[in-house]
Amino acid sequence: MSQRATQKPDHELHYECVSFYNHEAELLDTKELEQWLELMTEDIRYDMPLRVTRDRGSDRSEFSDEGFNYREDWSTLDARIERFQSEFAWSEDPPTRTRHFVTNVRVKDVDGDELSVKNNLLLFLAQGEEADGTTISAERHDVLRRVDGELKLAERDIRLDHTVLPMKNISVFF
């Protein structure tokens, strides 16, 4: 097969992934959380391990295997969404305004119906009348799975660039 023939499907796949992430960001930014949850597989694993500062040269990961800001599955994501939309989500009154900027989408591996994809996230948050917002950056390690011809999120590992979250609570999704 020619070089051109092997590159074209990669470009199409990359475009499909970018389109998926653009749609996901729009759903999150417009607070359409039930529709966002529909982008997940039923066996979703949605994790944000704690970042741990290590000495240079350490062979240990900068991310904890035991401590997490998030460690979610379908049922816990669904429960959080239900709570955020209830009158008891005091941390979300007034609601947080978000803008998800997803960049540097890289398809790392294709294994049957599953794609390993890395992407960078810059998340801007503002709430109420505060003059300054909060900016959070991360790299996300995702597994996208094709289900009935559509891409769905099967795994997300959110690797923050921060060791301490610059926010009072985690009432948004990454």
Rank of each mutant, 00 (worst) to 15 (best):
Y46G: 03
F84D: 04
H100P: 06
L165K: 11
L123Q: 00
T41P: 00
H141Y: 13
L27A: 06
R51A: 05
L77V: 04
E66V: 15
E87M: 10
W90M: 13
A25Q: 11
D148Y: 09
P166G: 06
D161V: 06
V117I: 12
L125S: 03
R146Q: 12
R71D: 10
V110K: 13
E139M: 11
L39D: 05
R159S: 05
D161T: 07
E155L: 13
W36L: 00
I158T: 07
G149Y: 14
S19R: 14
A25M: 10
L13F: 11
R106D: 09
K108H: 06
K118E: 15
H162G: 04
A79F: 08
V107P: 03
T134Y: 06
E72H: 02
Q3C: 06
D47T: 12
F101S: 12
A131H: 06
D142V: 12
S2C: 09
D111Y: 05
D43K: 03
S171D: 15
T53V: 15
T103E: 04
F174R: 00
D142N: 08
D59A: 13
L153F: 03
F124G: 02
D73A: 04
T103G: 02
G149S: 15
T103W: 04
R83S: 03
H141M: 07
D43E: 11
D43F: 04
R83N: 03
R146L: 09
G112A: 09
S75K: 03
M1T: 13
D29T: 02
C17N: 04
K118H: 13
M167D: 08
D55P: 04
A126I: 05
R56S: 13
G57N: 05
F84V: 00
I136L: 09
G112F: 10
E62G: 11
P95M: 01
S86A: 05
L28E: 03
Y15W: 15
R146V: 14
V164Y: 07
P49Y: 01
F84Q: 02
R146K: 15
D73L: 04
L123E: 05
H141L: 12
H23A: 01
T135V: 14
E32M: 14
T53Y: 11
E155H: 15
S86G: 07
W90Q: 06
R106P: 00
I158H: 04
E72N: 00
E155T: 15
H162C: 03
L165S: 07
E26A: 11
E82V: 10
G67K: 12
V102P: 07
I170K: 04
E34K: 11
F101Q: 10
A126K: 07
F124E: 05
L122S: 07
E42D: 14
Y15H: 13
V107S: 07
D113F: 10
L123N: 04
L123C: 00
V117G: 04
S171W: 06
K31P: 01
D113Q: 12
F63Y: 15
E12G: 14
